[in-house]
């Protein structure tokens, strides 16, 4: 049962990443692209966790935690740059 669910979830997350990629390439404005990349890193966290379940190894959480923190900080930094033209005021 879990195998089946794992495959379905992996397929859905991969499709989500493809859709995000489409928006990141097409996106008419800069905030659109940032939003797409932001969503993409959220989805990649889930993909890494699913991979961890697949290989039955729980050490992948640290990678997921790192991606979560770095992704958040970089999104905020790029937004700051768009807002002020400067990151550290």
């Amino acid at each position: 049962m879990i195998d089946m669910a794992l495959w379905i979830a992996l397929a859905l997350f991969c499709a989500a990443v493809v859709l995000n990629f489409y928006r990141a390439v097409v996106g008419p404005s800069l905030p659109d692209r940032i939003l797409a990349v932001d969503t993409m890193y959220m989805n990649s966290i889930a993909l890494i966790v699913l991979f961890g379940i697949w290989v039955d190894n729980k050490d992948y959480f640290e990678a997921a935690l790192l991606i979560a923190m770095l992704g958040f900080v970089s999104t905020i930094a790029v937004c700051k740059y768009l807002l002020r033209g400067d990151i550290i005021e």
Binding site: I2, F13, A15, L19
Partner: peptide
Amino acid sequence: MLVAGGAFAF
């Protein structure tokens, strides 16, 4: 949980 998560993200 896994399937619901995937569906929501999609």
